[in-house]
Design a protein around this nucleic acid. Sequence first.
DNA 1: ATGAAAGCGCTAACAG
DNA 2: CTGTTAGCGCTTTCAT
Lengths: 343, 343
Amino acid sequence: MEKLTIRDIARMAGVSTTAVSFVLNSRGGVSEATRQKVQQIIRETGFTPNIHTRRLNLKRSFTVHVVMRQYDFSLFNLFAMDVLTGIFRESKTLGYSVIFTAVETDTECGELMDAIHSKDSDGVIFIQVCNEQVIRLLQDEHFPYLCVDSHVPQDGTIALVEVDYYDAAYRAVRYLAQRGHRDIGFLISDRHAEFYRSTMQGFQDALRDACLPCREQWFQRVIHNIPQPATNAMEKMLSGPARPTAVFCASDTYAANAIRYVTKLGLRVPEDISFMGLDDLVISEYTRPAITTMGVDKVHMGRLAMETLFRMMNGRDYPAVQRIPTTLVERDSVRTVKGGMAP
Amino acid sequence: MEKLTIRDIARMAGVSTTAVSFVLNSRGGVSEATRQKVQQIIRETGFTPNIHTRRLNLKRSFTVHVVMRQYDFSLFNLFAMDVLTGIFRESKTLGYSVIFTAVETDTECGELMDAIHSKDSDGVIFIQVCNEQVIRLLQDEHFPYLCVDSHVPQDGTIALVEVDYYDAAYRAVRYLAQRGHRDIGFLISDRHAEFYRSTMQGFQDALRDACLPCREQWFQRVIHNIPQPATNAMEKMLSGPARPTAVFCASDTYAANAIRYVTKLGLRVPEDISFMGLDDLVISEYTRPAITTMGVDKVHMGRLAMETLFRMMNGRDYPAVQRIPTTLVERDSVRTVKGGMAP
DNA sequence: ATGAAAGCGCTAACAG
DNA sequence: CTGTTAGCGCTTTCAT
């Protein structure tokens, strides 16, 4: 069966291609009779217009390009996976397709730009990726784009959908303090300057506001993209003379690995040492103890990103920075120290 | 800056559009001098050919369409996520783009076909989705497609990349038997007739070959797509007079939830009851105890799927059914009963 | 309301 | 080797 064209339909309906085109795009300027006739033929034949032609004419492709990081360990994809789900759902309702590129951490600018140019799309969503050069080029081209969870300074130059990490860190530590913890460690990211900055700031402000001590050794940076991140950092944190009673982890993945590590060491969690995470990933519910964490609605972030990009692509105005709040999810990895308030 | 066309490049290089086109597609029939000239102009201007036009002319889009299930709980996406990673990697090397549709469980045939027709692509990969009607229509259109982990009869009519579930179940039970377990329960899927059939067959054959008893009550079907699958099934399994010493779960997600459930009940895993899973998902490493499971190389499945579809799309021959073997991943959820062999 | 015809940007057959 | 030209299938302008 040869692929039908608008011409065939026009012939079968005894009208011009213009009429068919108008019906397809539900534009006015066609008599009701013609419209009926054409619609019937379309239904009977199961005709679908060639999408490339449409795109060629309209100079838009009605697809968005999602660029995300390609991690070696699925563990790190857990966050992005949920964001994706949100993007999918929203794109469906908006009538957009979604196309992908997964980039290695060290992908260079030119390569990425090529990918963006060659895969056609009307806009780009970066998830956990934000190369300044690429951003600048995109800006020069007036190409719509937006970053989700990209750990980038929120100065308004780049459209962003970001977790309110400062607030998350602040409230996490405050929570720990309220549970009676005074000696609090911190597992922080070794990358993403902005992520580092905001969580660190939140952490320190909370420490200060709660009048808690602050020891150099209890701040440990986690090395990414190795099979068991956090193990190393945790080892260092515990090697000193004093041990924190609780550790705030800038990601649930750190927390999961740290808990596993200290458990192997013979420490009991949360009795001997408490842990608190950030993000509320799927695994956090299944570790033992399950991780108490500052949860984020990642699917919502995806929806919001897609919706915002849609506005950009259609010339409407849009909020430059959208900061997503976190919610405390209490599970079993934090104990109440005597003197602290029970949950 | 207006978008350049092949015409502009031709003019600037002082050659015809044909020459430019040939250079772009690295076809012969152009003198070295011309080629150099054109390539330089392209480099200088940063010209990229309009992809729609190319597709329109070639009548191919160089993109594959991935259709996957849209689950409400990210837990269920863990398998598909890794398959996707494999598809991405392979598609990149093959020069294909990837486009998506996430379907609800009850998406009807017409809707899916529309999605397939309207998002353009040269082939479809279904992940954990396999609607017979859709398959038939696709077959009628001679449209390349392939199913990954779709739990469908492997009779050769449909190109498949499937886990060897029979073998996985058989070997899992044999492993449990070797560890000295004689009373073995089974948490099986409530869906996917073929998945049910093959795992059940493997389970029963292994039981028979090891001369183990087989109790009706120890077979429990898990209800999907509820927040805590397996809890219910586990409850039923434990409600009888006798309790199995080990349970084989047709998925790690079942195992994770079952372990959590029985732990809350006060049972110790693996001392009081052992669990064995299937798939080796990210969570399995983080539960406590970590789940002993039959692992599958999901990323490999994705690669294989993409590569096979590529063959189909290009008229080469391809294997109709590819059965992926599983590998035992020993962790901590199975104990050795006295009389059994230590690992 | 309708249809003829001129593109959209590129590929490829064909003639030179 | 090179350029001219006819499409690819659809949108849209402009007469009618």
